[in-house]
Amino acid sequence: MSEHLVLRVVAKLLIPFILLFALYVQTHGDFGPGGGFQAGVIFASAFFLYGLIFGVENARRVVPPVVVRGLVALGVLIFGGTGVAAMLMDGNYLEYAVFAEDPAAGNHIGIWLVELGVGVTVSAAMIAIFLSFTGRQG
């Protein structure tokens, strides 16, 4: 178990910061560079690092494939659901302006939700592909 001691320690230190950075990119895509897509990929890369250092079996225990499969679909549902929610509030599909009194504020809410959907699907899809590729050897 003492193999790659340096890698294990460094990875344990880095993973929380990578996850935190992913969340920062996710929630600040409207003010700085980035957004759901980049955040999803960074989030997945923290998981890849964990899988590479601590083994794929441990990684599967952290995020079971069943959960990943659900999340891949959930992100698309959040995106599509935002559009349907706009329709229920007497707007067009994906017309975010109806979410608030002020159209700009409504747009901001809509963009935030849609980016969340993108982030969830992208990170889950990347993790699903990683687990599929690495799972075949085991």
Binding site: G29, D30, F31, G32, P33, G35, G36, V72, A73, G75, V76, F79, G80, G83, L94, Y96, D102, A104, A105, N107, H108, G110, I111, V114, E115, G117, V118, T121, V122, A124, A125, M126, A128, I129
Partner: peptide, 30 residues
């Protein structure tokens, strides 16, 4: 849009349909 980053505004709001299509592609790939 109330969003200072124009890239995000275009991707998520003005071109929302395109982005929906893109994540459907990623969904399908996964």
């Amino acid at each position: 849009t109330g969003v200072p980053n124009m890239v995000t505004a275009v991707l998520a709001s003005y071109r929302g349909y395109d982005t929906l299509g893109e994540i459907t592609v990623i969904f399908t790939a996964g």
